[in-house]
Simulated scan of single mutants.
Amino acid sequence: MTYDHELKLISPGRVEKDEIGNQIPIDPIETPILCGLKSVGRSEFYNAATAGLRPELVFVIHAYEYNGERLLEFEGKRYNVIRTYETNFEELELTCERVASNG
């Protein structure tokens, strides 16, 4: 697997409360890493669709670079991580679905 693409893993960072007690994320931490890109398998796509998920892409990254982030950005679009799969000691697959709105 070649790592010819770049993505940003997004951690929430710190949280502040507004005047009525809502938690607002401040300064999310974005960590750029290199990744490989795979398509979602046919059976995985349809099985996920029955659970209300819409997997679009699978990113292959080095396992040591991942710290449980549930959000990432790739080519200006945000994705939620819906599944992780450790393929071997060094690699991890992140199955992701597109976030409906970036706002």
Rank of each mutant, 00 (worst) to 15 (best):
E16M: 02
G13S: 00
A49K: 11
P32W: 04
L7K: 02
A49V: 08
S39I: 15
E44T: 07
I82D: 03
I20F: 04
E97C: 12
I33V: 09
K38E: 01
A100E: 11
F74G: 11
K8V: 02
Y64S: 13
S101W: 06
C96K: 12
E93I: 14
E73C: 14
V15L: 00
F59S: 10
I10C: 08
P55W: 03
L7E: 05
L71Y: 14
S43H: 01
R14L: 06
V15Y: 04
P32R: 13
S101E: 05
E65I: 14
P32V: 04
E91A: 15
P25A: 07
N102K: 15
G76D: 07
R78I: 10
P25I: 03
L92K: 10
S43W: 02
L34K: 09
R98W: 12
L71C: 09
E30N: 05
E56Q: 04
T84A: 13
A63N: 14
I20G: 05
V15F: 05
K77M: 15
D4S: 09
R70P: 08
M1N: 11
K38C: 02
G52M: 08
I10P: 03
A63R: 14
E56R: 07
Y79W: 11
T84Q: 06
P12C: 04
Y66C: 02
N22K: 04
R98M: 10
A100L: 14
